[in-house]
């Protein structure tokens, strides 16, 4: 995909995510929106995948360690053709294949089941180590939340990844500055996350997390570096929709009145954006 196409893909992912959350009436909007551009770049331009063959042995793997952002991943997977777009409206329905948190046994394209924070990154590190042992070319991409960094297990996984020079692993930290109860700096000051990762032995970079071109360039550089790498994404929780970016309590939203209207307005804006670009 070209950068223009990636931008369109981002708009589509955000649109489908907004639609599924509106249908459900509640959900993890903030952390879903902040990773949209990264998912767009990974699935649109970076990962070696075959949506028609989700269990293809040669595929790259993706682990959403901050599993509650499942809706954004589901939108991405559906748009890539892993399963019908219609499934998206079943988010969290009784008996659904799309539960809040990604479940590899239920959803085509989901490589690891996550939801208990801190655990996904260990799964990703294990996958990368296995590929390294077998000299396989598969790469592993993982997104960790900045609140999730509170979990000690995350740092255990980081130590192992850097020590083992897992250059086939690319870790993203979604630094949207908020967790469930508020600002990360008020709950557990993360200080300089990039510097911490560097001190842990990673090639660590910090970039704006809403710029497809920059994300793509940085990912390409990291993958070529031959080092265990980490990209700290400077993002905004609720990214891409001003109302939700500014909403203080935007982790898990029950849509009503003002927030419901804002979500509907966002859907209209995004729909127009997607239609306009499609037409061109």
């Amino acid at each position: 995909m070209t950068i223009q196409e990636l931008k369109l893909f981002s708009a589509q992912i955000r649109l489908e995510t907004a639609k599924m959350l509106l249908k459900r009436g509640f959900g993890h909007l903030g952390g879903s929106f902040s990773i949209v551009e990264t998912l767009s770049v990974l699935y649109g331009a970076v990962m070696t995948i075959d949506p028609q063959n989700p269990s293809w042995d040669q595929r790259d793997r993706f682990v959403l360690s901050k599993g509650h952002a499942g809706p954004a991943l589901y939108s991405t997977l559906a748009l890539k053709g892993y399963f019908p777009l219609e499934w998206l409206s079943t988010l969290n329905d009784n008996g659904t294949n799309l539960p809040s948190h990604p479940d590899r046994l239920r959803t085509p394209g989901v490589d690891a089941t996550t939801g208990s924070l801190g655990q996904g990154i260990s799964l990703a590190v294990g996958m990368a180590k296995a590929f390294q042992i077998d000299h396989r070319p598969n790469r592993v991409f993982a997104i960790v939340g900045d609140g999730e960094l509170n979990e000690g297990q995350v740092w255990e996984a980081f130590q192992f990844a850097a020590h083992n020079r897992l250059s086939n692993l690319l870790i993203f930290i979604d630094e949207n500055h908020k967790q469930l109860d508020g600002l990360t700096k008020d709950i557990m000051n993360p200080f300089d996350v990039r510097a911490k990762m560097e001190a842990f032995g990673f090639r660590a970079l910090r970039i704006k997390g809403n710029d497809e071109a920059l994300i793509l360039q940085t990912v390409t550089d990291c993958l070529a570096s031959g080092q265990a790498s980490c990209i700290v994404l400077d993002t905004v929780k609720g990214q891409g929709v001003p109302y939700f970016e500014q909403l203080a309590d935007n982790h898990h939203i029950r849509f009503a009145n003002e927030s419901e209207a804002a979500l509907k307005a966002a859907i209209e804006t995004l729909s127009a954006q997607v239609a306009g670009k499609d037409a061109r």
């Binding site: 509640f26 969290n92 539960p99 809040s100 948190h101 479940d103 089941t113 939801g115 208990s116």
Partner: peptide
């Protein structure tokens, strides 16, 4: 809190 089925929409992981 939320033992057993009370995990509701948090699902099986929770």
């Amino acid at each position: 809190s939320d033992p057993g089925f009370w995990a509701l929409h948090n699902g099986g992981t929770h």
